[in-house]
């Protein structure tokens, strides 16, 4: 199973995303922003970072990259796409997911292990979770406040398009505690927190069992591999 990981100028977490794919058992294909060829991948990850220096708006210039034209077409045709942090911002700027992301309400960059509630498991990237499961993965962003107009929010809530909500603490002022979204088809998922940083014991968030033993993020990557195998 080939999972493409896109690198834009200013992407930071592409190597961690590649590592997460390998740990989950997938084959990594490196995709470059200027190359519109998706090299026959079975899924795509848009990793975190500060693509194009966050110029204009976070993710706005990356959304215009040649590789994104192909990804938008493929996503509309059902290709699984996961956007993490800046990747989520790219998905929103590409109109693959609705709404927008603005500077954190408290105006500070935040970096913490964040509890989330899995709100939807009918997606390519969350089918390995249990509905309502609480997971902990790192969160690190300056512009992670999710907003949308009232009509969009009603649709997101009514159609079950909220994939993750922040639990216990709302770290950035996101409306309705929204941490991540899915599209109608369930192939596109975007979220601000970073599953790729919680995939290997010794390097993840602390858990009650042991320090740095959290691997809740791994399920994102095993989920898509299972879906690709079964489809």
């Amino acid at each position: 199973m080939k999972i493409g990981v896109v690198t834009f100028p200013g992407t930071l977490d592409d190597r961690d995303a590649q590592r997460a794919v390998r740990i989950a058992g997938g084959e990594v294909v490196k995709l470059w922003h200027a190359d519109a060829d998706l090299h026959s991948v079975d899924a795509v990850i848009l990793p975190g970072g500060f693509s194009f220096g966050d110029y204009l708006r976070c993710g706005a210039i990356a959304a215009q990259a040649p590789v994104m034209e192909s990804i938008i077409d493929a996503a509309n045709g059902g290709l699984p796409v996961l956007g993490i942090c800046n990747g989520f911002q790219v998905l929103v700027e590409s109109h693959l997911l609705p709404g927008g992301l603005i500077r954190n309400e408290h105006q500070h960059f935040i970096c913490r292990d964040q509890k989330l509630i899995v709100e939807n498991i009918d997606t390519a990237w969350t089918n390995g979770f249990k509905l309502g499961q609480e997971i902990t993965i790192p969160l690190k962003n300056g512009e992670g406040g999710y907003i949308a107009d009232d009509e969009t929010l009603r649709r997101l809530e009514g159609d079950g398009l909220i994939a993750f909500r922040y639990s216990e603490v709302n770290p950035n002022g996101s409306v309705n505690n929204i941490a991540g979204l899915r599209n109608e088809r369930g192939n596109v998922v975007g979220l601000m927190p970073h599953p790729e940083h919680a995939v290997e014991p010794g390097f993840g968030p602390d858990t009650p069992l042991a320090m740095r033993s959290g691997v809740d993020g791994l399920t994102f990557f095993t989920s898509v591999l299972n879906q690709v195998v079964n489809s």
């Binding site: 708006r57 706005a60 709404g99 107009d149």
Partner: peptide, 9 residues
């Protein structure tokens, strides 16, 4: 379409 994002600007 590009220089602004109607959701936030």
């Amino acid at each position: 379409d590009f220089l602004s994002n109607g959701v936030i600007e």
